[in-house]
Amino acid sequence: MMDVAAQAGVSQTTVSLVLNDAMGARLSHETRHRVLAAAKELGYRLIRRGPSRTSATSTGAIGFMADEFSTDPWCALALDGVREKAWEFGLTVSVAVTRGDAGMEQAAHAQFLNQPLLGLIYATIQTRRIEPTPALARLPVVLLNCYAADRSLPSIAPGEVLGGRMATKRLIQAGHTRIGLIEGETWMDAMRDRLKGYRQALASHEIPFDPHLVRPGNWEPSAGYAQTHELMKLRQPPTAIFCANDLMALGCFEALKELGKRIPEDVAVIGYDDREIAQFMRPPLTTMLLPHFEMGTLAVEYIIDHARRPEKRPAQIKVECPLVERASVQKMAAQ
């Protein structure tokens, strides 16, 4: 699948969606054609195993351990992807949530080791670096939304730099050069990478970086509201605002409406995450999709394809964050 992805110029997730003929995948006819043509040229054939005719539990299971499950939807979305893909292979999923408690994690590891697991998916709710414990080395493991500092374990994470670049590029393509950015907490990997992508997009279009257009936030609507007011007080206010998540975009919308600004006619807004609320904002929010469902399916594929054939260099996979077009960005009117 990686070879097909490289030849077709797409992600491994896209290859999986095309070859599995996934329902609801937002892929163009041209992209599907490129993937199918590359697979044919390389002689790759997808083996459709399907659910086992015998009891699924008799064929084994995959472990899924998460540090948190209820504060945000990301681990739940990843688990949905894990469960669906695992069942295609006749596998069930055994789940443990540790809430960051070292003792609970140790107990969960011990429980997993007593089961006939094909492998373990170790997930975190925030994209971050982890220090692998010795227990992780006792099972074939894939890190999900996290990574080891020495890259000694395979990992799957969102392509946040590319996501930040694509969000900013969408605003540039609409004709904007004064683009504000309302950040999340900058100690987080996700925010550092989204900022990096923002700066890369500006640089590649020869738009100077203006630090006054970058405002501190905290992922909450209140930050989007307050920092939008600060951005619009500038002598040259932005004509577009990139909010680093959808909740801050919600606050941004309220501030712009309070100031009498129309979205997107006066100020375009793009968000990030594609939370459910994004489609119900008025106008509906253009945003970037966090691909946790696809990450979960890839983690299962990796365990099945690679756990019993260890590689010298464990794969470090970045999954692209697709643009979700709605109505909060439009081409600027000629000045």
Rank of each mutant, 00 (worst) to 15 (best):
89 F>K: 09
233 K>I: 00
13 T>V: 15
232 M>G: 09
34 R>T: 08
101 D>E: 11
288 M>F: 06
112 F>D: 13
2 M>Q: 15
103 G>Y: 00
88 E>Q: 14
321 C>Y: 07
35 V>E: 06
101 D>Q: 07
312 K>L: 08
115 Q>D: 10
259 L>I: 11
253 F>G: 07
211 P>A: 08
267 V>L: 08
259 L>K: 08
237 P>S: 07
244 A>Q: 10
183 E>K: 09
247 L>Y: 14
79 L>R: 07
85 K>S: 14
25 A>H: 00
140 P>V: 04
126 Q>R: 11
109 H>P: 09
123 A>I: 00
24 G>N: 15
313 R>M: 07
304 I>V: 15
27 L>C: 06
4 V>K: 07
209 F>R: 09
13 T>P: 07
132 P>V: 00
152 S>Q: 02
133 T>P: 02
138 R>T: 09
176 H>W: 13
53 R>M: 08
151 R>Y: 07
169 K>M: 11
40 K>G: 12
126 Q>H: 14
10 V>Y: 08
49 R>A: 11
295 M>G: 12
50 G>W: 05
185 E>G: 11
84 E>T: 09
130 I>V: 09
159 G>V: 00
222 S>R: 13
150 D>F: 01
7 Q>K: 15
109 H>D: 12
210 D>W: 01
175 G>W: 03
284 P>F: 01
141 V>Q: 06
217 G>R: 04
57 T>S: 07
68 E>K: 03
99 R>E: 15
18 V>N: 12
7 Q>H: 13
91 L>R: 03
333 A>V: 07
100 G>L: 01
290 L>G: 10
221 P>Y: 13
74 W>A: 10
226 A>P: 03
335 Q>N: 11
257 K>H: 11
311 E>R: 12
167 A>Q: 09
217 G>W: 03
120 L>N: 13
253 F>D: 02
312 K>N: 15
74 W>F: 15
329 V>N: 05
236 Q>S: 12
60 G>N: 06
179 I>M: 10
72 D>L: 06
265 E>Q: 13
243 C>D: 11
153 L>V: 01
285 L>P: 04
93 V>S: 14
44 Y>V: 10
205 H>W: 07
286 T>P: 04
302 Y>A: 04
59 T>E: 15
294 E>R: 05
272 Y>P: 07
8 A>D: 04
124 T>R: 14
241 I>Y: 08
62 I>N: 12
265 E>D: 14
36 L>N: 11
206 E>F: 02
